[in-house]
Design a protein around this nucleic acid. Structure first.
Lengths: 131, 131
DNA sequence: ATACATGCAAATTTTTTGCAAGCGC
DNA sequence: GCGCTTGCAAAAAATTTGCATGTAT
């Protein structure tokens, strides 16, 4: 059975306050302010555990390390190929994506993660300046 | 400028014959049959290069290492949470996904990768047996 | 001849794990 | 007290990089 841990609670609480999808390292650095002795291993263990029980989302954007999202609700993400930032993306009209996918698939689809790639607003802007 | 290399050609050719989205390690092991002295570093360099120029796709399913897809055409993937296998998934009606995403986003969307997660047919079958 | 590509090995980066001690229930 | 959790350190896994040499153009 799952037992309460203040470290895990703190990690969860930290994540829901952040909208930039921090890496495990960033979580570690921040939680350390409250728990100076917490270890990176514990952070990883709890992040993976929270993702498994569905309280957070683990993102693997392919650029840099994995990231974690305190919002477990299905939604979309944008990954900037230039600076590697990860942002939420509101895409209307895609809620039917699961239903569509299940139609001709013999397995069992539990969920999906969509990453959009490109240049984020600020990288797009600085490109213009340099050209 | 890009120069021809028989190693790179072989890697590309190998990838287009495989539909299981092999890892860099698997590519390495197979290319070694033709080029016994090829190094894993060269395989990684060429896989990344081919992905950058758009001849292949790099996939980061979040379970296990990155995988590579010899088919650069946009399409969907299914990742089995049980065995980690990666399969192509035909989902009709999702071609409008880029247009939708671009509508309220100030950056520049170049493409997207969607991963569906769940139990693959064979893992789904063996679950039934053990219960 | 020049510049890109390779092989090799070492280094980095990212993540996981073993274990003794601590803590929630 | 039992069993999950932690901190610490070491290890493992995955990927990148430096450099001398090789090769395409």
């Amino acid at each position: 059975m799952l037992k309460y841990s203040k470290q895990r609670e703190s990690i969860k609480n930290f994540l829901v306050t952040r909208y930039d999808h921090p890496t495990a390292e960033t979580v570690y650095l921040n939680i350390r302010r409250e728990f100076p002795n917490i270890s990176l291993g514990t952070v990883y263990r709890n992040l993976n555990l929270l993702a498994e029980i569905g309280e957070i989302q683990k993102l693997s954007p392919g650029i840099g390390p994995d990231r974690f999202d305190g919002n477990p609700t299905p939604h979309y993400h944008f990954i900037c190929r230039h600076c590697g930032c990860v942002m939420d993306l509101t895409v209307s009209g895609l809620d039917h994506i699961n239903i569509l996918a299940g139609q001709d698939f013999d397995g069992e689809i539990e969920g999906h993660i969509t990453y959009f790639y490109g240049a984020c607003p600020s990288c797009k802007a600085s490109e213009k300046c340099s050209s």
